[in-house]
Simulated scan of single mutants.
Amino acid sequence: MGDHSEVKVKIPFGTKYLDAIFSVPDKILTHGVILTHGAGGDMNFSHLVSLVAYLASRGILCLRFTCKSLNIAYRTKAYKSVVEYLKSSSEYKLSSVFLGGRSMGSRAAASVLRQISQDDNEDFIRGLICLSYPLHRPNLQSKLRDEDLFFVKCPVLFISGTEDEMCEKKLLEGVASKMKTPRKIYWVEKANHGMAAKGRTEDDIMMEVNTQIFSWIKEIIEQENK
């Protein structure tokens, strides 16, 4: 597999800047992935670092960023700024990009896609990757955070643990069945919301997750090139 380098950048967002890092493959292909973290932590959360290293070493440009606000509307605005920044980049000319995030970060990505689909200019975005999508609060299954998902027009990949206390299996399957776009759910056996499972190491789980994400991206890119 190829190597990659990391480039720190500051992305303009209103009067502020968002800290971000490009993971740049030695041989730049034409596809990229934008990723962000959940309600806690930042872009250096171990699962995101593991994923970008895996993808970048296989030729996919990755851009991960930090936005610590717990306000979903603010997080969505920040995510949209990052998408626009990458789209207008003169250094990295991509034909398409996948949006993704972990937990609250995946909610923000879905919300951006809802807005972009309403602008009807979403050709640049080829898919949505939801790692541990927080479909509901723990023990509050009656109130689902599913409204944005029904507006997404591109393919969606959900990766969740079967023991995720914020995403009951039957409920996510029910939501997915009502979505009008190609979607896939990959369940990590016995993993919780933090993607931890008894008797398994974090590296072992992340290798399983990273492999699934890469093969799904590859499949979509190959369909696009037919």
Results as ranks from 00 to 15, higher is better:
residue 161 G to D: 10
residue 99 L to M: 05
residue 209 V to L: 07
residue 138 P to A: 15
residue 75 R to G: 01
residue 99 L to I: 06
residue 28 I to K: 10
residue 21 I to G: 02
residue 217 I to N: 01
residue 128 L to E: 00
residue 130 C to S: 04
residue 195 M to T: 03
residue 164 D to F: 14
residue 48 L to K: 08
residue 221 I to M: 02
residue 138 P to Q: 14
residue 23 S to V: 12
residue 57 S to Q: 08
residue 201 T to I: 04
residue 81 S to N: 13
residue 24 V to W: 10
residue 26 D to T: 12
residue 114 R to T: 01
residue 145 R to A: 09
residue 178 K to M: 07
residue 109 A to I: 00
residue 185 I to V: 04
residue 9 V to W: 05
residue 150 F to Q: 13
residue 50 S to L: 06
residue 18 L to I: 13
residue 165 E to A: 06
residue 200 R to G: 02
residue 190 K to H: 12
residue 168 E to Y: 03
residue 40 G to R: 03
residue 81 S to D: 12
residue 76 T to I: 00
residue 155 P to L: 06
residue 43 M to C: 11
residue 190 K to L: 03
residue 173 E to R: 01
residue 164 D to E: 13
residue 199 G to I: 11
residue 44 N to G: 06
residue 110 A to H: 03
residue 106 S to D: 11
residue 184 K to A: 01
residue 12 P to E: 07
residue 126 R to M: 13
residue 96 S to H: 07
residue 97 V to C: 08
residue 21 I to C: 13
residue 40 G to K: 04
residue 123 D to V: 04
residue 209 V to Y: 07
residue 199 G to K: 02
residue 52 V to Y: 15
residue 169 K to N: 04
residue 13 F to S: 13
residue 96 S to G: 10
residue 222 E to C: 01
residue 69 S to C: 08
residue 118 Q to S: 04
residue 172 L to R: 01
residue 19 D to N: 08
residue 142 S to N: 09
residue 20 A to S: 03
residue 12 P to C: 05
residue 6 E to V: 11
residue 71 N to Q: 07
residue 111 S to P: 08
residue 152 V to Y: 11
residue 26 D to W: 09
residue 11 I to F: 09
residue 43 M to K: 11
residue 158 F to W: 06
residue 221 I to H: 05
residue 58 R to G: 10
residue 196 A to C: 10
residue 1 M to Q: 08
residue 120 D to N: 12
residue 218 K to Y: 13
residue 150 F to H: 14
residue 170 K to Y: 04
residue 78 A to M: 12
residue 13 F to M: 07
residue 178 K to T: 06
residue 212 Q to G: 03
residue 34 I to G: 01
residue 84 E to A: 01
residue 170 K to L: 09
residue 199 G to S: 04
residue 206 M to N: 10
residue 172 L to M: 05
residue 138 P to Y: 15
residue 30 T to N: 15
residue 4 H to S: 06
residue 114 R to M: 05
residue 101 G to Q: 00
residue 181 T to P: 01
residue 33 V to A: 02
residue 12 P to S: 08
residue 65 F to E: 10
residue 184 K to P: 00
residue 195 M to A: 09
residue 103 S to T: 14
residue 167 C to H: 10
residue 157 L to G: 01
residue 205 I to S: 05
residue 31 H to C: 07
residue 226 K to Y: 13
residue 35 L to G: 05
residue 57 S to I: 04
residue 35 L to T: 04
residue 179 M to Y: 06
residue 225 N to P: 00
residue 203 D to F: 14
residue 20 A to H: 02
residue 33 V to S: 02
residue 41 G to S: 13
residue 193 H to P: 14
residue 96 S to Q: 05
residue 138 P to D: 15
residue 23 S to T: 15
residue 112 V to H: 00
residue 56 A to M: 15
residue 84 E to S: 05
residue 159 I to N: 02
residue 13 F to A: 11
residue 46 S to C: 11
residue 39 A to R: 11
residue 61 L to F: 13
residue 166 M to Q: 13
residue 127 G to C: 03
residue 50 S to E: 12
residue 211 T to Y: 12
residue 129 I to G: 05
residue 60 I to G: 02
residue 187 W to A: 00
residue 183 R to F: 14
residue 174 G to C: 08
